[in-house]
Simulated assay, not measured.
Amino acid sequence: MHLTANGHPLDLSPERYGELEPMNHLLGDPAGLREAMAERGHLFFRTLLDPETVLAARHEILLKYAVLGEIDDRYPIDEAIAGDGAGVASANLRAFSESVRSGARYRAVTDAPEVMDVHRGLLDGEVRSFDMRWPRFVRPGEGCGFHCDGPYMNRGTSRIFSSWIPLGRIERSEGALIVLEHSHRSDRLHNGYLRADADRDGLTWLDDDPVNVQNDYGRRWLTADFQPGDALFFGMHTLHGALDNLSATRRCRLSSDSRYQRVDEPADPRWTGEHFEGHGGSRVFYPGLGSWQNEDFQDEWKDVDEHGRLRLRPATGASRNDDT
């Protein structure tokens, strides 16, 4: 097996790489969920959600990507075989992005009772999801740099959890998420990077090399082959990223990121409210299409004109974002 992240090979020795352990036995045990999250920094569940609900969301989203030519229509839409993306440059990406993240079948996944119940247990109270949701379409050859969510979400409460939900089958060679074991306990992260505000401090990816990250923050990379209905939850201090999508059949990865907090705590205005600001009103969430080391958030947020048309900047060379 050969796995890479941002073009760099993973060390697959048992000391550096392992499997996510399902924690389904803790469902319905709020205290057990909180204790395990404090210990592990993440919780993985097999078939938490109804697979048919997840596959319905997948179909809803892929139909929209197919309109842009991102799906090769010579194959079944749900196979998500990469197309030429010929319609992306002329599309209103602002309208497209809003349509994808507000779809009823997609919302049935992010706000599913099973997802909300886990977050109620973790936060010991009533919860809400952020108004922004992050459905991610990852083309062959694409991946994601390493980071923690805290600096991107920390203008309200710090008591937030992320849910990563595969919208369909995702084998590890197709760009599965990876988390760094016990990274949430890293003094180095807590004394530097985790004190930053991504927008104020101009954060790029913490790093793009999985071996560098392990050398700096320790432990094993953990991942799995994911199936519809699986879900991975983690806190704001857990270092994570994604493997590269090395699909031999040019199959695109489709997944979802969503965030949750207690209803009685302040919310980050970047991601909540009727007109949340994100990383600036002149851009939209449309991941991929190049590599910028996330400088000015370009790997995920694209500049658009007043009509929502893409304004793609030139790609940049490799860089490393130290502890800040």
Rank of each mutant, 00 (worst) to 15 (best):
H42T: 00
H42N: 05
F44V: 11
F44L: 02
F45M: 00
F45T: 03
F45C: 00
F45H: 00
R46Y: 00
R46C: 03
R46F: 01
R46I: 01
R46H: 01
T47F: 05
L48R: 02
L48C: 08
L49V: 09
L49W: 05
D50P: 12
E52M: 04
T53I: 12
T53E: 15
V54T: 07
L55H: 02
L55C: 10
L55W: 03
L55R: 15
A56L: 06
A56G: 07
A56E: 14
A57V: 09
H59R: 11
H59I: 02
H59D: 15
I61M: 08
I61V: 15
I61G: 00
L62R: 01
L62N: 03
L62K: 00
K64G: 05
A66D: 00
A66V: 07
V67F: 13
V67D: 15
V67K: 11
L68G: 10
L68C: 03
G69K: 10
E70K: 12
E70G: 02
I71M: 10
I71F: 08
D72G: 10
D72L: 11
D73L: 15
D73C: 12
D73H: 13
R74T: 15
Y75Q: 12
Y75W: 06
P76S: 10
P76M: 12
I77C: 13
I77H: 00
D78T: 11
D78E: 13
D78A: 12
E79W: 15
E79N: 10
I81S: 04
I81C: 08
D84V: 11
A86M: 07
A86H: 14
A86W: 07
G87N: 14
G87A: 08
V88W: 05
V88H: 05
V88G: 06
V88N: 08
